[in-house]
Design a protein around this nucleic acid. Structure first.
Lengths: 336, 336
DNA sequence: AAGCCGCATTTTATCGATAATATGACGGCA
DNA sequence: TGCCGTCATATTATCGATAAAATGCGGCTT
C-alpha cells in the first residue's frame, strides 16, 4: 500500500524531489549522470507519478470525458471513433453516462465532476436549453446532440431534417405513398424526434402527398423493443402503410422484427429506412437503408473544437451542422 | 476561472475552513446556526468541492473504472448493467478502453492510472496470464473475461464450454450434422475462441459425430464484417455445412448477412446460433438463438466481489464461472 | 468556589507534485 | 585576482481539502 513517492526516488538517487520531477517531465535540463541516477532509482523503486497530486498542482489531467446518455449502441460506436483522436494528442478518453435523465446529466456536468477533466464532450439528451444555460464552467466543453443549446457553447449536430427528407424522398421515389414516421413527434422544440419528422414532412409535401398525423408514431423509449411494439400496434390497428422511416437504426431494427413477425416483406410490401447507419445496418438482412451520420466526421469536428478550446482559444462558439448522406441498402427498393 | 475554495466560503461565513468541511461532510457535529451560515455562504458563492484535492488528502475518489477492449456492442451493453450497481453505492462508474491491445491494456492498469479510482473492473482481452501477473497494485480489482488469469485476482468468467455445447447440441438435436464453429480456434490456452470450440467439439462427440478440423473457421477480428467474410469464404470453397455456431452474436450477425447473400435460408438450410444474447438477437429476423451470458448476473457478481474488496476484505480471491443458458429463437429449428 | 468534562471550533500538519525562486559552483574575462 | 554570468540543482511555497491535535468556553459536580 505504501506508495513510492517522488521523495523516495530523490532520496535513493541522492538528489532533490525537484530534480526527479525535472527528469521525468523534461522541464529544466538535467546533467546526464544525474539523469541516469534518477532513472535508475525510478526503475529500482518502481516509481509512478501520482496523477492526482500532479493534477492538483499543475491543473491538468490529460483526460477528456465523453458524457453519454447510455453506453451502448450509437454512443458506444461514436465513442470508439472519438477515442483515437483524443489519444493522438497524448490524452485519455473516459466515458461517463447519465442514464438520459436530466438530474444525472446535471450532476455529470456539475463543476465538481468536470474538475477531473481537461475537457468534456457532452452528448445532450435530457437537458433543455435553460438547464444547459445554468451550466457555468470555464472548462472546455463541446456539446453533441440534436437539441437546442445556448449560443455560448460549441455544438455539433446532424442535418436531421435533411437526412429524414432524403430517406423519405427515396422511399417515395420507389413507390411508397403511406410512410410512417416511427419514433417521431410533433414537438415544437428542436429535438431529434421533431426535426426528423419535419424532414419526413417536407419530403411528403415536396412530392405532393398528404401529411397524415396518424402516420407519426411515437415510441416510449429509443429501443428496438419500443419500436417493435409501436409498429405492431399500428399493424394491429389496421392503418395501412407501405413505408417506414424510423427515427434511429435501433428503432428500425425493432420495426424489422415487427414486420417479419407480421409477415410483411421488406422491401416488397413495406420499405424501411433508418438513421445513424450503425455497423449493424450493413448486416441485418436485407440490409438497412440508413441516413449516414458520418460518425468519424462528427467525431473529428467535435474533437477539433474541443482541442481548440483546450489550447486556450476564446473566440466565439461554433455551431456545426454535420452533413449526412443516404446509404441505400436492401430494405428499400433502390437497394441491391 | 478563479474557482471558489473552501477558504473563501469560510471567510464569507466567518468560520474556519475545517468547519466548512465538517458541515459539508457531516463528520463532526456543527451547531445549527453555524451550519446555516456555512450553507448560506456555500449557496451565495456557488461553492463546489474540489474532488482532486479531496482525493489527494482523503485517498478516495468514489469512482470505479470499467476498462474494456472497445466501447461498443457487448461491452457497452454490460457496462449499462454495471453502472446502476455502482451508483447504488453512491459511486460513479467511468469507462476506459484499451483497443484490445496488450500495450494499451498494460497502460490502463498502470499504477498511475489506477490511482484515479477506488476500484477497477478490468475486461481482459489482450493480456495473458504472465502479463497480468506483473500487475502489482493494491487497488481493489476484479477481472472479467474468458482468459486464464493469475489466482490472486478475483475473476468472473462464463461457462464457455457449456454454452457452446448447449448451442451445438441443440442444433444437432434439430437435424444439423455439419456444424461450423465460426470464430473458434484450436488454441490450447484457455480463451474464448478455444473454450467455446471445446464445447462445440464435445457436443459433436456426445452425439457420435466426427470432428472435422475444416469446420473450425477462424475470424480476423471479432466483428460482423470479419464473420461475414469468413463464412463467405467457406461457402465459396464448397465445403458443405448445415449449421453454424458463431462464437459471438456479433459474428453471428455477419453470418446472417453471408447466408442471406448466398441464398441460404435460416433455419431451413442452415441453423445458426450465437453467444452473448445481445439485445439485437431478439430482433434480427428470424430471431437469433443465442447462449445467454446473463449480463445482469455477471454484473452483480463482479460488482459484489469488487465491493467486498473496497470494503477492506482481504480473503482469498474468488474465481466465479457464471452459468449460461440457451435462448432458442427462430434461427434454429426448435424456435418459433 | 475550584476543578473537570464535554462539546464546538480552530490550528497545524499533511497528501505528492511542481512553479517560482534561491543557491552555489565553475569558467571567462579584464 | 576579483567580478559576473551561466548552468545545474536545491529550497520554499503552493494547489485545496481534511485528519489529528489543540483550544476555549460554559455547565456541572462536590
Amino acid at each position: 500500500m505504501a506508495r513510492v513517492t517522488m521523495a523516495d526516488v530523490a532520496r535513493e538517487a541522492g538528489v532533490s524531489a525537484m530534480t526527479v520531477s525535472n527528469v521525468l517531465n523534461e522541464r529544466l535540463p538535467v546533467n546526464e549522470p544525474t539523469r541516469a541516477r534518477v532513472m535508475a532509482a525510478v526503475a529500482a523503486l518502481g516509481y509512478e507519478v501520482n496523477l492526482t497530486a500532479r493534477h492538483l498542482r499543475a491543473g491538468r489531467t490529460d483526460t477528456v470525458a465523453f458524457i453519454v446518455p447510455t453506453f451502448h449502441d450509437y454512443f458506444g460506436e461514436i465513442a470508439d471513433k472519438i477515442a483515437p483522436l483524443i489519444e493522438a494528442d497524448g490524452r485519455h478518453l473516459v466515458l461517463e453516462r447519465t442514464s438520459a435523465s436530466p438530474e444525472y446529466e446535471m450532476a455529470a456536468v456539475s463543476v465538481a465532476r468536470l474538475q477531473f477533466y481537461d475537457g468534456v464532450l457532452l452528448s445532450v439528451a435530457g437537458l433543455d436549453r435553460d438547464q444547459l444555460d445554468r451550466v457555468r464552467t470555464p472548462k472546455p466543453i463541446v456539446l453533441l446532440g440534436e437539441r437546442d443549446v445556448p449560443d455560448r457553447f460549441n455544438h455539433v449536430r446532424l442535418a436531421n431534417e435533411e437526412g429524414a427528407r432524403l430517406a423519405t424522398a427515396h422511399m417515395i421515389e420507389h413507390g411508397s405513398r403511406r410512410i410512417l414516421a416511427l419514433g417521431c413527434t410533433f414537438d415544437t422544440a428542436h429535438m431529434m424526434s421533431s426535426d426528423r419528422r419535419a424532414g419526413w414532412e417536407r419530403a411528403l409535401r415536396d412530392a405532393g402527398l398528404d401529411v397524415d398525423a396518424r402516420h407519426v408514431v411515437p415510441v416510449s423509449t429509443y429501443t428496438s423493443a419500443a419500436g417493435r411494439d409501436a409498429l405492431l400496434d399500428v399493424i394491429a390497428s389496421g392503418l395501412p402503410f407501405d413505408g417506414v422511416f424510423a427515427v434511429t437504426d435501433v428503432i428500425a431494427l425493432g420495426a424489422i422484427a415487427a414486420l417479419a413477425e407480421s409477415g410483411l416483406r421488406v422491401p416488397v410490401d413495406v420499405q424501411l429506412a433508418g438513421f445513424d447507419n450503425l455497423d449493424m445496418a450493413r448486416f441485418v438482412p436485407p440490409g438497412l437503408t440508413s441516413v449516414d451520420a458520418n460518425h468519424e466526421g462528427v467525431a473529428e469536428t467535435a474533437v477539433g473544437l474541443l482541442r481548440r478550446q483546450m489550447a486556450g482559444w476564446t473566440g466565439p462558439a461554433e455551431h456545426v451542422v454535420a452533413p449526412v448522406r443516404l446509404v441505400v441498402r436492401g430494405s428499400t427498393r433502390g437497394g441491391a
